[in-house]
Amino acid sequence: MSRQISFDLNGNETSLEIEDHWTLLYLLREKLGLTGTKEGCGSGECGACTVIVDGAAINTCLYLAVEVEGKTVLTIEGLASPNGDLHPMQKSFIENGGIQCGYCSPGMILSATALLEENAAPDDDEIKHAIAGNICRCTGYVQIIDAIKRTSQPETEKVKVVAWQSDTGNK
């Protein structure tokens, strides 16, 4: 059956017609062109398709689109500010080597973001617990955990990574 649904998608009120059997993953990728949400397994075992619905990280491959009616959906495309500034979590992943092939990155970054929303200063175990459902085959997770930890630390403790800045090449 098709029906009209309305929800907040990355800060934009969105109304559209969907079919009942569409997963949220299908809606985002195939109908809305939001291909930042990845499919890695289709059965909730890898976390590549993670988005945040009403503050909670969920697997869009096992979540029906019809269920987002009236809810707030945040995908990786909506994480950076509208003015283009990256979210601190994105910046930290970039600066600390948390990204290699990048296929798990959108889901991983969103899982990490959801964690910090509910626990601003998680310890290593809490970080690992929160991202255990996001499989990464490239990094061995070390630099990902590092990146999340650095985002969650107070500003003063953050280590500046000089090489990222464009004006630090040659002096």
Binding site: G44, G47, T50, A56, A57, N59, L62, A132, G133
Partner: peptide
């Protein structure tokens, strides 16, 4: 319950 599936699974 804290170790069933992942956070994403447990959220739904």
């Amino acid at each position: 319950v804290k170790n069933i599936g992942s956070v994403q699974i447990r959220n739904t």
